[in-house]
Design a binder for these strands. Structure first.
Lengths: 196, 196, 196, 196
DNA sequence: TATGAATGAGAATTCATTCAT
DNA sequence: AATGAATGAATTCTCATTCAT
């Protein structure tokens, strides 16, 4: 299995670094190879083509990203706590890894439609996590049972994505983690005057 | 002023058509020129370079987009109605113009960081519209006065943007307008069990 | 019509020179462009791709080659004279243009199967010239009427082609034209002891 | 002597198969190694480089080819019969081995000038066979003693080669062997009205 | 002998932009 | 103002060959 060989991960990590530093369009395969410490041709022993590096990068990193969120959520006992945990994990993981944040929020979006479809496939798993939390909340009667799942999913993901993108575009000048509680409250209560 | 000459608008409209039909990366200047019925070189009498066509396109179209939202909102008397009106206008204008929706939601995001910074400048005006509505709602005590304006702005915009992008990526198979009320409710009440 | 523009012919002539001098595999498009005195990109205004240069080269040069043979043959009154004329013209034209001889006999044969099929199309016209002469000879009862046209055509063309290729491979050390009569006699009488 | 080791022949036979199936340009060393059941590196224990495989292939196969022709010819008592025998053997051997025919007539001609010079060296032995037959025919006074040996050699070889190439290019749709007599007659009598 | 992972040189083509007319 | 022919920089991927094991 190529994915377990050390060079596979080396190349993906080099790709993250190179893309974060140089931007998507200035990230030539030869630059990635150099940073990974392998020959250009070696890249093609592990990846079908350049796009395959990017898709694999996203799968690998986003897979771990979602896995960690799933693990953390399991330790929580109700939907509200799970949602908070998800927001916190989403933010903390990207806050911890600035380069990855740049790559996923900005650079990889410059890819073509085909690549973005593959990226969306990876995201489906994340959307399912959201769905489960919301469903649980509705079952608990803490969330409105009449909610349209698709809209909720898009609000939650859209909000998280937009807040992270803003943070990255502002060059991470403020503390992303500090927003977690506020965003959680917003998602739970919306704009309305809170009842408490 | 070049912006009032007929060819200026011709070229921008051609760009929207060409990009919607062919995708960002297959939209060569020569294709836009052909569709606009002018020579390649003529483009450069009206635009500094290719990127300038795209920025101008966004300014022109998004400017009108925001203007119409502003006009419509003025006729509403409170923040909740204004927010609903904004959601409806946002959706209706893009639903009415599929090509523009494809260009703004998918194709223009493939542009490089520099171009996206300029695009963000255009969006600032829209974000200010959101801010005004939210501020008004807080003043009316209908919206929670302790809300963090930046987070709200990002939740609102992120939700609208994500819902439209999903609709476009699903090839506009469902009716975007029908979502307006649900999204409005979600933004107002969040996930919590509604009080009514 | 692009074929009548001066750059079209410039590029083809440059291609003949470059291929004859450097060999097929060392004849990069950029080398041809440089020799033709145009930019690399200009090549692609006149030719679809590199292979199209080679096919066009063959069509252009071989077309003229065959045309001249046809013209010369018309002035002869019987098949034997026409055959001699054909042999002489075949040899004289290639003897006069060493570079073209190298390209057609050696370098262009290194091309892939697809290109060779296109080259064969061009040659069909030449084979028809042979067929006409042989048919005329059979009608005159000077040539054996029971001959298999396909075999004759292949013998004649194979002989001419092989003799020219040998001459080119021997770096044109001997006089190709001096062979014309001998080859003509061979084709007419074969190996048999002549009757005269 | 490496040539007698089993892997030497394995590799050559694999090369014939691979080139016949995939064409010259798609016949990578790794493909040949795989078909031969050896590692890529093993090839280089038996052959200096890729070109050496091709030259050796030609030497090996053409050597056997010529040997069989020589054996068969020995059983004939005069030049005419020997010539017929040569034509028949030439055709029958290639008709029996389609893959080899494809490789020698089409694929190996795509090689570069250098390789073809080496190939020509191998063919010299065949040309000598032709020369001997012709000389014998002239001594017997059945062939015209004033013939130019070089021209005859090129006519005979050019005719055989052209007829086989045509047969291969036409995907061996007709029976090559059936042409043997006709070609033999053509070579003996040329185009002239036969005396019988 | 045999292996096969790693190497790295090498080239066609596109397309934004210019500028002589 | 308008044209459009000409420019030329820039990059992925293949595959023959090597060499540590």
């Amino acid at each position: 299995m190529k994915k377990n060989k050390p060079k596979y991960k080396q190349i993906i990590d080099a790709a993250v670094e190179v893309i974060a530093e140089n931007g998507y369009h200035s990230s030539q395969v030869s630059k990635i190879a150099k940073k990974a410490g392998v020959a250009d041709g070696t890249i093609y022993l592990y990846f079908k083509n350049k796009e395959d590096i990017l898709v694999s990068l996203f799968q690998e990193k986003m897979g771990q990203f979602i896995e960690k969120i799933e693990e953390e959520i399991q330790t929580k006992s109700n939907a509200k706590e799970k949602l908070l945990s998800m927001v916190e994990m989403h933010y903390s993981q990207l806050a911890k890894n600035h380069q990855l944040a740049i790559v996923t929020q900005l650079e990889l979006r410059q890819s073509n439609k085909e690549l973005r479809l593959k990226i969306n496939d990876v995201l489906k798993r994340y959307l399912e996590v959201i769905d489960h939390i919301v469903q649980e909340g509705m079952d608990e009667k803490h969330f409105d049972p009449s909610l349209d799942m698709r809209l909720v999913r898009q609000m939650v993901f859209g909000t998280l994505d937009e807040t992270v993108t803003n943070w990255v575009m502002n060059e991470q000048k403020y503390d992303l983690m500090q927003q977690a509680n506020g965003v959680h409250q917003l998602l739970i209560n919306g704009l309305s005057q809170s009842r408490e």
